[in-house]
């Protein structure tokens, strides 16, 4: 498990509008890569190109290559559905299925991908996933209650459990803490540190302290002006990015001079 992602010359469009331009980068396995940058710079768009969720939006398309351990995700023979099965995603707002119980939420992806699966095996995976998401102890007595009854932070960890239950290679997180309080945020950050032993993790964040705390490598996105496409300005080890950036724009952003 856990694979490397290589992106080269990637452009993403919404209709005729180019949202990101010429992004190339390597995302290493078993590490956390953070994307930072001002709003509208295309970091979330880029994240969504990595599991082909970008094209869900009508009129959206992508040019360029994304290789998962050397295999092109955008090759004509590859279906987006199977890409998403390999590369899990956690969204900005916790989005458990409102009509399903906690148990069913975690099992949802497994039921899709594994066809017939024995109850005991399913029980095992659900428990393991909830433990993996540091949620087991809080919900083990109410697995059949609706997921919507949990707190925001618990819901987000439920979504993480749901994503890791299908054992993906990569976990994409789109500002996973922006709707959460500080204590829940801390719980998610602890969880990320634990998950990186098994998964390639990519996180988009507005919070630079968070990027500094959790990530191994950081990419800074920016755009020249409103309406221009976003680009990667700089990408490096997180420790170096935050102490000694090579680009003026990165330094300005990190020190809070704009953005």
């Amino acid at each position: 498990m856990s694979k490397q992602i290589q992106v080269s010359g990637l452009d993403a469009y919404y209709g005729s509008h180019k949202a990101i331009e010429d992004v190339s980068m390597t995302i290493e396995p078993r590490s956390i890569t953070a994307f930072i940058g001002p709003s509208g710079c295309g970091k979330s768009t880029f994240l969504r190109t990595l599991n082909r969720m970008h094209e869900v939006i009508p009129g959206a398309r992508v040019e360029g290559k994304v290789l998962l351990d050397g295999e092109d995700l955008y090759a004509p023979t590859i279906e987006p559905v199977s890409v998403r099965r390999m590369i899990g995603m956690v969204f900005q707002r916790p989005n458990p299925f409102p009509t399903m119980s906690i148990y069913e939420n975690v099992a949802a992806g497994l039921r899709l991908n594994r066809g017939r699966i024995s109850r005991s095996e399913l029980d095992g995976i659900v428990e393991e996933s909830l433990k993996g998401a540091n949620l087991w102890n809080e919900v083990k007595d109410r697995l059949n209650k609706p997921g919507a009854g949990l707190s925001g932070g618990q819901q987000q960890r439920l979504c993480i459990a749901r994503a890791i239950a299908v054992q993906p290679e990569v976990l994409l997180m789109d500002e996973p803490c922006s709707a959460l309080d500080p204590i829940s945020t801390l719980a998610i950050e602890d969880l990320m540190a634990k998950l990186k032993d098994k998964y390639t993790i990519v996180i988009v964040t507005h919070n630079m302290q968070q990027a500094a705390r959790v990530s191994d490598r950081t990419a800074f996105f920016n755009l020249a002006a409103q309406g221009q496409p976003g680009k990667v300005i700089e990408m490096d080890e997180t420790s170096r990015m935050f102490t000694n950036p090579t680009q003026k724009a990165t330094e300005d952003y990190i020190t809070g001079r704009f953005g």
Partner: peptide, 27 residues
């Protein structure tokens, strides 16, 4: 039907019909 639940289903690797069954029809 909430777009965010539809996206959650798709991100789990659901086909269009599976997404509709998980996120649209129950709602």
């Amino acid at each position: 039907a909430p777009k965010m639940n539809e996206e959650a289903a798709l991100a789990l690797g659901a086909t269009r019909w599976e997404m509709i069954r998980m996120a649209v029809l129950p709602f």
